[in-house]
């Protein structure tokens, strides 16, 4: 089976005063379709860099990125946009929504970026909102949604382009424990159902009972924490 994401020997450094700070130190990671991988670490551990590299938002100093078997390490900016548009789903922290759009339109926007519109786009948006339990909220704008609902809209939006790889940034940071658990359950469920490879980056250890594969990221080093749990 082709891995949804394969990172090989990735190193990322940032300039920091006169020297360079290592955010990711020669890390490798493989995510299979249907698999949810949680990456836990304190803030500043390089989680965001990991997500940025996998999302083709940041070019690593060295290493190789493959998405669905395709080497995309050195693609142009335009090609990276195209990969994000067609293969990646990004779930942003908290409420990264466009204030003027309703929940349904947030989803339609993704299709518009590819030049798709019309009834089928609308139907797909409604199906996805239904799948995340928000069929009733399709006409609401971001400020009319609760934190948990916003996170669900964010997940539905990331699924709009039928992605190979789902990258999730701190999905529980604005939620209480119970709602956080719900969101993680939702993510692992859609990952399994749609055979997506999913990377969840979080500093929240409490919600990770549902994830089979947990990695910790500390000082740029990625290591397995434990395998188990009972979820997807």
């Amino acid at each position: 089976m082709t891995a949804a994401l394969e990172l090989t020997d990735i190193t990322v450094t940032y300039p920091d005063g006169g020297r360079r700070l290592t955010a990711l130190d020669d890390i490798s990671l493989q995510v299979q379709p249907g698999e949810t991988v949680a990456v836990v670490g304190p803030s500043g551990s390089g989680k965001s860099s990991l997500l940025a590299v996998a999302g083709l938002l940041l070019t690593p100093d060295s290493g190789r990125i493959e998405i669905a078997g395709e080497d995309v390490t050195h693609v142009s900016r335009a090609a990276a946009s195209q990969v994000r548009l067609t293969r990646l789903g990004l779930v942003f922290q908290q409420s990264n929504f466009i204030a003027s759009l309703t929940a349904r339109e947030q989803l339609e926007m993704v299709a518009r970026l590819r030049g798709d519109k019309g009834g089928s786009v609308r139907r797909r948006a409604d199906e996805l909102l239904d799948a995340v339990g928000l069929a009733d909220a399709a006409g609401r704008r971001p400020h009319q949604l609760s934190g948990g609902q916003r996170q669900r809209v964010g997940i539905a939006r990331a699924l709009m382009n039928d992605p190979t790889l789902l990258l999730v940034d701190e999905p529980t940071s604005a939620l209480d424990h119970e709602r956080g658990q719900d969101i993680i359950r939702l993510i692992t469920r859609v990952t399994l159902e749609r055979e997506i490879g999913t990377v969840v980056v979080t500093h929240d250890h409490g919600v990770l009972d549902h994830v089979k594969r947990l990695l910790t990221l500390e000082d740029g080093h990625l290591s397995p924490a434990y395998a188990g749990g009972h979820g997807g």
Binding site: S81, R84, L88, M109, L113, R157, N161
Partner: peptide, 8 residues
């Protein structure tokens, strides 16, 4: 956000 989602 739009650019991260792939907008040109």
């Amino acid at each position: 956000v739009l650019k991260a989602m792939g907008a040109r």
